[in-house]
């Protein structure tokens, strides 16, 4: 029986047992991370760190391991968080960018309503002059949120629309200007150049703007999200992420890889199609749901 074994044997058994338990649970955790789109490189690194700690500290249970994993992910997500820089003089220009169909226009509308509810003055700019009925779509959001919209005609120059909107915001001393841009794949050099031109236009009218450039990423996005974040940051200096469609079954784990590899924080989360379906990013709640 156990009592008759030497101390060293007992310790040996405990260590061996712990390792066994840990390996099985580590595999479980690795599976959970990969299945939520965190991606192999970031997953390997997280699991590697956990394995080290497990061996050093002799973690007793899978539950404990899970808590450590949560702490690791939380550390990645919170270490990149930065306070939002607000200019001393209005307007603060916030630009929505991203690949096609992620939720830029919807997020613009939701944010307009959110800032309005907070009592700030807001202006919307329809700078997607390309996609069919994109302007009409933002017009509906402008009505819903009770926020004015500056637009140009379909097929017009998006930089011209932005110039008008930024000038108007400046003249009216509007606190926040929200700019909805057309969806574009990060691989299209000409469209990325157009974005760069918009950034420069904004800076010309309101020096130092855009103050925030939010990359809107769909929670279902797989490993391509990293490349999106990389190239949009190159072209338009992304300052943060909006993770949309988190009300679906996708976990949005790609933002962990983006935080880890590119240092970009998540700012907002989209959780539905209605005007109030946007919340500030909560790393704890996000991590909980990531691991199920």
């Amino acid at each position: 029986t156990r009592t008759r074994e030497s101390l060293s044997t007992t310790l040996g058994t405990v260590v061996a047992l712990t390792r066994e338990v840990d390996d099985a649970s580590l595999d479980d955790l690795e599976f959970a991370l990969l299945a939520s789109d965190i991606g192999a490189p970031t997953t390997n690194e997280i699991i590697g760190r956990l394995r080290d700690r497990a061996l050093r500290q002799g973690i007793a249970s899978g539950a404990e391991l899970r808590e450590l994993l949560k702490a690791e992910i939380l550390r990645i997500l919170t270490s990149v968080a930065k306070p939002v820089y607000a200019p001393s003089n209005p307007p603060e220009v916030v630009m929505m960018v991203g690949v096609n169909g992620t939720g830029k226009t919807t997020t613009s509308g939701k944010l307009a309503a959110l800032y309005r509810r907070e009592g700030r003055s807001v202006l919307l700019c329809a700078a997607d002059t390309f996609r069919a009925a994109a302007i009409e779509q933002l017009e509906v959001w402008s009505q819903r949120s009770g926020v004015d919209l500056i637009k140009t005609k379909q097929g017009g120059d998006p930089s011209a629309a932005l110039f008008d909107a930024a000038s108007a915001a400046k003249a009216r001393a509007t606190e926040i200007l929200l700019v909805d841009t057309a969806g574009r794949l990060h691989t299209k050099a000409d469209l990325m150049k157009e974005l760069d031109k918009m950034v420069r236009t904004s800076d010309k009218v309101v020096p130092g703007s855009p103050h925030q450039t939010l990359l809107v990423i769909d929670a279902t996005t797989g490993q391509n999200g990293l490349q999106q974040a990389r190239l949009f940051t190159e072209a338009a200096k992304v300052t943060g992420i909006v993770l949309t469609k988190l009300d679906g079954t996708a976990k949005g784990g790609i933002v962990v890889a983006i935080a880890h590899e590119l240092g970009l924080p998540v700012r907002y989360v989209g959780i539905g199609e209605k005007i109030e379906d946007i919340i500030e990013f909560d790393p704890v709640a996000f991590t909980e749901s990531l691991l199920g």
Partner: peptide
């Protein structure tokens, strides 16, 4: 085409309900 691991969940949900006859992969 940029969809990650969740593709199986959504495809399964639509197929279980509708018996899809095919898919189109965009972007």
């Amino acid at each position: 085409a940029m969809t990650g691991q969740d593709a199986v969940n959504s495809a399964k949900a639509f197929n279980d309900l509708l018996q899809i006859t095919g898919a189109v992969l965009t972007k």
